[in-house]
Design a protein around this nucleic acid. Sequence first.
RNA 1: GGGGGUGUGCCCGAGUGGCUAAAGGGGACGGGCUGUAAACCCGUUGGCUAUGCCUACGAUGGUUCGAAUCCAUCCGCCCCCA
Length: 406
Amino acid sequence: MRRDVLPVSEQLRILTSGIADLVPEADLAKKLERNRPLRVKLGVDPTAPDLHLGHAVPLRKLRQFQDLGHTVVLIIGDFTALIGDPSGRNTTRPPLSREAIDANAQTYVDQAFRILDPERTELRRNSDWLEPLGFADILRLTSRFTVARTLERDDFQKRYREGIGISLHEFLYPVAQAYDSVAIEADVELGGTDQLFNLLAGRELMEKSGMEPQVALTLPLLEGTDGVQKMSKSYGNYIGLADEPFDMFGKVMSIPDSLMVKYYRLCTDMPVDEVDALESGLASGDVHPNAAKRDLARRIVTLYHGARAAAAAEDRFNAVFVKHEVPDDVPEVPVRLEDDVYLPGLLVALGLAPSSGEGRRLIDGGGVKVAGVTVEPHAYNVARARVEGQIVQVGKRRHARPVAPD
RNA sequence: GGGGGUGUGCCCGAGUGGCUAAAGGGGACGGGCUGUAAACCCGUUGGCUAUGCCUACGAUGGUUCGAAUCCAUCCGCCCCCA
């Protein structure tokens, strides 16, 4: 889908929709007017092998650039990973091993190409130009930045104020990232809003190196399913690009209503005008939040798994969460049962409880059903015939069927 | 180099010799309610077929009938001065 001669005004409309900052505002237009493909940079840390919708936000923006004929330079921060980006962190990151970095990088790229167009993507590793630098080069580079400027960063200030340590090498992260921009001659660099400082460092260094500085384009951070923290694997609030359709659908359904519009803007293809209309519809009560959220979930699942999978996921969602039906694909687990079955132990064997103590608590809390009947508190022992081959359910949505081993 | 502080359960954080498996909060899980895996309300929250036993308060070793609480050494983290 190549539309390389769209007028600049139209390109701008697409490229700036949903973004947080564009610095400086006017320069993107200037660059576009030269009518040559822009080099659009995104640097990624090979630290998160499982990409989620939050990672997808800048990737989707990159894809828009590609669809308009521009070139994406995707930089695997295999060298900077040795530093660990201090952005948004309140502690020093532990450095990764070389092996872990390589493996993560490969996984990242595989997943990123579900969104990016490989034909218009230049894949680079920043160890190519960072590793050969000698101490003299480092001195030259760091001399272009001042301590005061570096300490201006929110996260450094915050950490400093709160007495959380900042290691000296963390100061070098923005320097290294800025040098990436020089090395690949970036026209535009994307990042989350927490990256603004790093992106601006790139502008400074390019300018001082006698180049035309890049434009910094930031995208809002996407909150996770808890609606509070930014989406991140470590907060356990993420929707993975590789999540199964049903999980993905359910996770989208679990976001707070207040976040729906943002998800529409940042995670779907819905045109800007339509999102605006939806937003006012929700505000006025003309659009039912449940209908809107279902549509959102359907759109997102369709994006990553196709329409058919999305429809199936929705059906299953209805069955399990709306009608509380037992799904038809309850996993069968072979277990050897005594004649007198100790239920808490069985729950553990079925993977429905982490310990038999937890199993007892679940039973006492009325959360366990055997063949559709709630187990009475303290009724821990049941006859084998009552459970073998029957559906054992914990909570509303976890099921397993114990079967005799062959 | 000198001085000071700190290390508790998934996380934060009370607790200064027995009443502590350890307050409180968060999270998580279960129940209710709901358009919803949202909000709200209620309950549970170390392991073990268990009126008890085991493991646990940075590590190791002591003091004591008894230690998260006292002592010693060590390790980690932080602050101030230089």
